[in-house]
Nucleic acid binder design. Structure first.
Length: 811
RNA sequence: GCGGGUAUGGCGGAACAGGCAGACGCAAAGGACUUAAAAUCCUUCGGUAGAAAUACCGUGCCGGUUCGACCCCGGCUACCCGCACCA
């Protein structure tokens, strides 16, 4: 009985937030105050968040953090008179939808439609100021027509190609993965084992843009950790490629960043997949042993290859040796899987004295270790030597520093025609095809006579056909491969019989250009009109997750540069500014997950406390950039604050538009204005709480409350609108002018000075603002306590910091 | 292993051009209102000692620079996030 009463009482809040929030949702829907108008005299502001994948699980509080943050910024910029574009859409192709469709025997399009409807309702519930007339859906043929169009442009210019190569194969998804999708050897999505498989795949030549993707980071306002991560991922290194002659009569080319250590190269290693093995077949004595090793390496998954990284394996080739070009000595060649086929030339010169991996291998196989850079002890560990190490045992390089030796030997190699300078990147081309149904069909036809032929633009969009079965086959073919009718087609080039490509694009395709579509979402003749792109792009501020740094963010920069090169977009970079939010953890401090049962559903919070409270709490819970645990109790604190604002606004107010609490209001305006731009939402809210507290203590004017509502409105828009209307301040608070502050009015005319004696705080004194050292010193010495402490002691030094502190050093 | 980051009360977090550590919120304790509870309002709230004034100690650990260090420098430790045999 009493429990029931408690429960009811608990929900007895100051105002009926459900009715208030529903009311304003309706009004915003009717009046469309957030509609962005292309072209205007105002400054444009394009704020972007990562559009969600509409999963069946619905919106997560993890979405609400970045979305609320950008909504607060967008609302503030709008009130500051900027022309704001703040759009939303759905990245709706993807595996979970397809899997759900398979399990429940529904068409993925139907699942997508349901999920989008659910997400839309939730996003509206949270009061985001999206322009709902610009919604984009990547699975809409009117949208993916342009995704396919971009692919054809890439194909035209040789940036999309088909190649057979070892790829990452997820055994559970039965699908190829990009390098970026393999996380510590397992599938990023399902956590299953990833193995290497030789497959013919569509590839995009992102490597052609590696240097520009790297260089252009410098001019961008991205948070540093995003830049660093992209730089590392692109992984530029400079060195040399050089040839070693072999006893088989041919040459073996290697890449090295340490050409200076050439005299120390005592053996060579080639990857198990290296093509030279075939050429040397007749010369090799231990071919069986080599074959066995190759097969064993091929069977290993990526995970296994890295797991056994501690213990090096390999087989020496008997029958073929290499000749070190500077020493003239014959050195052995090994195959080992510690050398990667996909980087450099797939072969290395091994310098065990100065490379840790080579050192380990040499120790295991009893190979000679030669010191060529002095300073270390190469018998006990490999020694890098830095740039300043001195060369030894290196003929004409002796006595030079490592840096100088690099230059000299490289020039020597060039002069002798043995090698050349070389820049390498870790970045690989982007594996672009997926053997799944629910993705954009690749608009390519395979003709026996003409090869791969682009579908004419007039045939776009190439629609996904209806299939009986969405499941992939164990042979790794897309479900589309079973569609005989759809599959066979005339070659657009020669008119002969041909077959369609049955792979589809990865999820990253549609998201690589979606922000362009927002500028002009209904355009049927172009991905967006040039006029709209000129006006709205680039994106001014893009907030999103760190997990997309080397995926979506890098991919879309690549596509954008390409579109710039072919004259489709006006800028070479898509996003001027990139920020990133921390994760919201469960109450137990762990990552939220269904299995841990610590997931917070935003619907429940909104139901109990309202959207304004949820928004406010999410912005208040901690440093935006850092992970922060959820606290169900702390949510109540935000609700209490909103209730106090309500009480204040409904209470006794002096009938003046001026500020009665001038200093407090000006300070808060300044603080909130600055903090929102710096994404310090938590301290902005703290200052609003302080202002409310002061105003509630008495003698607040209508002007004070008006300012408070304006400042609060980006965080709690529904309640702010309701009180704005109740107090008769005008139309909509979301379109009212953001308050200005006068810096002079934020300053006190007195300063409280910390008084230290010998560096230790003793007391404080109040002096006029800007008082000079003498005045402050006099005031300090006049203080009883200070007088007592300093009595009978000699003042040897005085340090003052204006308006802050005085430190008296006594003896 | 490499790269990036973090470490502050019981908890989330403030304050960093080197200048009053702990704003704001949560939790807790006490009080007011109430028949009672909830809600609300008021007060206290880093530690030790003390009735108090006050004193001493306190920003992961050890050292240094400085009148003064959460902040700068050197050396550790722990945790988080990337990358992971990239020659």
């Amino acid at each position: 009985m009493s429990a029931e009463i408690n429960n009811e009482a608990k929900n007895e809040f100051k105002y009926d937030f459900k009715a208030v929030e529903a009311k304003w949702r309706r009004i915003w829907e009717e009046k469309k105050p957030y509609a962005a108008k292309t072209a205007s005299d105002k400054t444009k502001f394009y704020g972007l968040i990562e559009f969600p994948y509409p999963s069946g699980a619905g919106l997560h509080v993890g979405h609400a953090r970045p979305y609320t943050a950008m909504d607060v910024i967008a609302r503030k910029r709008r009130m500051q008179g900027e022309n704001v574009l703040f759009p939303i859409g759905f990245d709706a192709f993807g595996l979970p939808t397809e899997n759900y469709a398979i399990a429940n025997k529904i068409h993925p399009a139907a699942v997508t439609e349901q999920n989008i409807a659910g997400f839309t309702a939730q996003l509206k519930m949270l009061g985001y100021s999206f322009d709902w007339d610009r919604v984009v859906d990547t699975t809409d043929p009117a949208y993916y027509k342009w995704t396919q169009w971009i692919f054809l442009k890439l194909f035209d210019r040789g940036l999309a190609y088909k190649a057979s190569m070892p790829v990452n194969w997820c055994v559970s998804c039965k699908c190829v993965l990009a390098n970026e999708e393999v996380v510590s050897g397992v599938c990023e999505r399902c956590g299953s084992e990833v193995v290497r498989r030789e497959k013919s795949q569509w590839m995009l030549k992102i490597t052609q843009y590696a240097q520009r993707l790297l260089d252009d980071l410098d001019g961008l306002d991205y948070i540093e950790r995003v830049k660093t991560q992209q730089r590392n991922w692109i992984g530029r290194s400079t060195g040399a490629e050089l040839d070693f002659e072999t006893t088989a009569g041919d040459k073996l080319r290697v890449y090295t960043t340490r050409p200076d250590t050439l005299f120390g190269a005592t053996y060579m290693v080639i990857s198990p997949e290296h093509s030279a093995l075939k050429a040397w077949e007749s010369a090799l004595v231990n071919l069986d042993e080599i074959r066995e090793y190759q097969q064993a390496a091929a069977k290993k998954s990526d995970f296994e290859r890295t797991e056994v990284s501690k213990d090096k394996t390999g087989v020496e080739l008997t029958g073929v040796r290499a000749i070190n070009p500077v020493t003239g000595g014959e050195i052995p060649i090994f195959i080992s899987d510690y050398v990667l086929a996909t980087y450099g030339t797939g072969a290395i010169m091994a310098v065990p004295g100065h490379d840790e991996r080579d050192w380990e291998f040499a120790k295991k196989f009893g190979l000679p270790i030669v010191e060529v850079v002095s300073g270390g002890d190469v018998e006990s560990a490999a020694y890098g030597g830095g740039d300043t190490g001195i060369m030894v045992n290196s003929g004409f390089l002796n006595g030079l520093s490592v840096a100088d030796a690099k230059l000299k030997i490289t020039q020597w190699l060039v002069d002798k025609g043995l090698g050349e300078r070389k820049v390498n990147f870790k970045l690989r081309d982007w594996v672009f095809s997926r053997q799944r149904y629910w993705g954009e069909p690749i608009p390519i036809v395979h003709c026996g006579k003409c090869g791969y032929v682009a579908l004419p633009e007039s045939e776009l969009p190439l629609l996904l056909p209806e299939v009986e079965n969405y499941e992939t086959t164990d042979t790794g073919e897309s479900p589309l491969a079973a569609m005989a009718d759809w599959l066979s087609v005339r070659c657009p080039h020669c008119g002969g019989a041909a077959k369609r490509e049955t792979d589809t694009m990865p999820q990253w395709a549609g998201s690589s250009w979606y922000f362009l579509r927002y500028a002009d979402p209904k355009n049927a003749d172009a991905l967006a009109s040039r006029e709209a792109l000129d006006y709205w792009t680039p994106v001014d501020w893009y907030n999103g997750g760190m997990e997309h740094t080397t995926l979506h963010l890098l991919y879309s920069r690549f596509w954008h540069k390409f579109l710039y090169d072919i004259g489709v977009v006006p800028t070479s970079e898509p996003y001027m500014k990139r920020t990133s939010h921390g994760m919201i953890l469960g109450e137990d401090g762990q990552k939220m997950s269904k299995s841990r049962g610590n997931v917070i559903n935003p619907n429940d919070v909104v139901d109990e406390y309202g959207a304004d409270t949820l928004r406010l709490y999410i912005m208040f819970l901690g440093d935006f950039e850092k992970a922060a645990p959820w606290s169900q109790k702390a949510v109540r604190g935000c609700k209490r604050f909103l209730d106090r604002v309500w009480t204040l606004a409904e209470g006794e107010l002096s009938d003046s538009d001026d500020y009665a609490h001038e200093k407090a209001v000006h300070r808060t305006v300044k603080k909130v204005t600055e903090d929102i731009e710096a994404m310090k939402f938590n301290t902005a809210i703290a200052s609003l709480m302080t202002l409310q507290s002061e105003l509630s203590d008495g003698a607040a004017s209508r002007g004070d409350v008006r300012a408070l509502l304006l400042l609060l409105s980006p965080f709690a828009p529904h309640m702010a609108e309701e009180l704005w209307e109740k107090l008769g301040f005008g139309e909509l608070v979301c379109l009212a002018a953001w308050p200005e502050y006068d810096n002079a009015k934020t300053i006190d005319d007195t300063a409280e000075i910390a008084v230290q004696v010998g560096g230790k705080l003793k007391t404080t004194v109040v002096v006029p603002l800007g008082a000079d050292e003498e005045t402050v010193k006099a005031a300090a010495l006049a203080d009883d306590k200070i007088a007592r402490i300093t009595e009978g002691r000699e003042l040897v030094r005085v340090i003052t910091v204006r308006n802050k502190l005085i430190n008296l050093i006594v003896k």
